[in-house]
Write a protein that binds this DNA or RNA. Sequence first.
DNA 1: GCGTCCAGGTCTACC
DNA 2: GGTAGACCTGGACGC
Length: 315
Amino acid sequence: MNLVHDFELKTVPPYSFELTVAKPAGWWWATPREVYEGRTLWTGVRWEGRLLGLRIDGLRTLMRPRIRCRVYSRARFDEAMKDAVTSLIRAALRTEEDVRPFYEMAEGDPIVREVVKDLRGMRILRWPDLFSALILAITLQMAPLVRSQQMWGLLMEHYGENAVFDGRRIRYWPSPKKISETSEEELRSVAKLGYRAKNLKAIAESILGGFPTMEELSRMPSEDARRKLMELRGVGEYSADIVGTEGGFSLDVWSAKIFGVLMTGKEPEDPRAAIPVLQRLARERWGRWTGHVFVYVLNDLDKVSERIGFDLTKF
DNA sequence: GCGTCCAGGTCTACC
DNA sequence: GGTAGACCTGGACGC
């Protein structure tokens, strides 16, 4: 791949590049196989059907942050393509988001007050590529994390693609086209997707059939985007919140246990049944910042556990 | 060793 | 409009 675009982004402080792209809980920015070393991220993104290599450097400090991004491609880039990719990366890094109102709200809340000090400057997740985010959501369903990781590994190994640039080789998620061309039986047996194979194929076909892109979804009112995502086969509220551009409160059985302890003082007896109740309580308590609280708390479980004297990492 | 349970949900069929 | 029951797979657990 050749260098086709090189630009800098200003960010609204405080902005921590490291906490944003390499989350303490281990979540990646675009692919689990990306590399983060010494304030530089080598990763990839699929845009308009083509895989791009990205080298992103976090420059300067928390309060005077800048980001330099280099884009690599096999194809040539014109000015319109450069503008589109710049805005895609800007949105996915959330460089223009002002988190100060969130931190002000946190001052008055005992659960969030210390968490925002631990993770000052972190931005919540915002997947750069819709289909990759949907693969993540589908493979998280009804599976312990190790099983989800097994599915990611097999999907990438057998159907993924390499971005080779800047002396690096980064393995990236399969394209919708590749998944649509693979039989459901093969996805079941080779990628061990089980019942999810049918859903993932249907999603790939919807995307190839003109489903809105992440950028188009982000321009919709968030509730409309959420409803649109739930039109996809196998995407319910949980998955729509994982993929969604506004950082939803995607409670599942695991996180319901954690927030059950934090918000009600005890582990729910039936976590699945507790999900809608906890979601309502969270929405009432944190309003538009609910998704931020979710990501901040789940990325700070060690310290939160220490403070409350209850091991939340055991779930 | 072997059987059972259930996990970082969603859809369908039935009432 | 509300809700059991089914769904892949594999690790944990009890016997």
